[in-house]
Design a protein around this nucleic acid. Sequence first.
DNA 1: TGCTTCGTTGAGCAAGTGTCCAACAAGCGG
DNA 2: CCGCTTGTTGGACACTTGCTCAACGAAGCA
Lengths: 235, 235
Amino acid sequence: MARMDPVARRARILEAGRAVALRQGLAATTVRDIAAEMGSSPGLVHHYVDSMDGLLAEVFELVAREGLETTRAAVASSGSPCEALRAFFSTSLRPGHGTAFQLWLDAWAEAARRPELGATSRRLNIEWQSVLVGIIEDGVAAGEFRCAEPESAAWRLLSLLDGLVLQMVAHDISFSDDDVMTWVAGSAERELGLAPGALTHPDAVLRLAPDRSSTPSTSSTPATSHTRSPSEAAS
Amino acid sequence: MARMDPVARRARILEAGRAVALRQGLAATTVRDIAAEMGSSPGLVHHYVDSMDGLLAEVFELVAREGLETTRAAVASSGSPCEALRAFFSTSLRPGHGTAFQLWLDAWAEAARRPELGATSRRLNIEWQSVLVGIIEDGVAAGEFRCAEPESAAWRLLSLLDGLVLQMVAHDISFSDDDVMTWVAGSAERELGLAPGALTHPDAVLRLAPDRSSTPSTSSTPATSHTRSPSEAAS
DNA sequence: TGCTTCGTTGAGCAAGTGTCCAACAAGCGG
DNA sequence: CCGCTTGTTGGACACTTGCTCAACGAAGCA
């Protein structure tokens, strides 16, 4: 292979690792696979990387951070806390997330056996939760959400989301991305004192509603419903 | 090693596999480890087992079914749907569940690469959800729960539980078994139209409350609360 | 042109993996 | 006592893994 600038070569290795990991899973990624992916030799990979554990941790971080930044960007460009919440959930469920989610499954399982991967997984997981905490706190400050404990509420919503996606990816359970979106949004409405449908109502366009910030919806008087409305999603 | 009856030997192999898998995880379990665990040779294992995939699937089923039957028994001996729900959640969170939960993590991750293990994981997962569906339907029939879609409600509750336990086991996140119990019970109350505290109120002893069936609590008029009460759990 | 630097090679090592199988021996009917 | 069935052995095979390292050769400079 052609001689390369060290930093470019290192990036190339991670990129190749990304491709291999997305194709066959993090736990089944080998040094030789990565070398073959970029048409090079195993020795070269180890010239830039100390251990397989560290390499897998870096590859995982590359993929996971990509998703995290996508979500962060969508959240940041949202006009309201409700819109930010929707953006958080919908970017977490975008098509193609399934193959990336396999990396999370591998990271969770391997965390007990690969220290660096475990530490990276833990760190990114907390970053992800922090984004959600930020949205909730913004919403509470704006008077749109009611939540006594944003930290634990974020863990509950994130865990529900992870658990549902897990069912779709690991087993191929009979519900869809849309179902998951509806259910998580519904849980968020109850968790944050929103009116049912505030996050799922069809009149709110999923992503872009530039004139929405001027009409802070109905959040001021959420004292209407008591039990969960069955919602209109057919499972 | 001493000669053994084939069915006893087979059981012994699975028992040894169980011990190894609980110690070092399903994905790190090898034929030689299992043979060494029972003081025997690798060849013997393969004399009773077709492939490693099948062996891991059987070991996983052994452990998972053990937990499932514990939960089933606790649910069956409950006097009311509410008590059954509490039993379902508390048996899913009993001490030592953490090491068994690692097997679930491994099964979910390996499901994509080991067909038999994947099929077993899927099957047991659905059995677990069925138990929950049964509880909900019983509660609805008894007029204690209100739930339009028991199937999807069970998936939501189970996913929340899995997601939260996952955070505790894979990462060592800062909430406890008690927090998870409180949160999942609270979610179940909202999901099933119960009054806040119906599942977590301290006057209900966690497991055994034999005189509770005569007083069907307050579930007949659940039209009181609208937003989530902050609950008393300090995260 | 020669020399140094350094990214790159790929064979090779030691330690694994699942799997197979010829040999062994314990129990048992004769 | 023998011979047969059959559970058991453990070495061996083919393969994969992470990792090393002496050798190579392209680029840059004098």
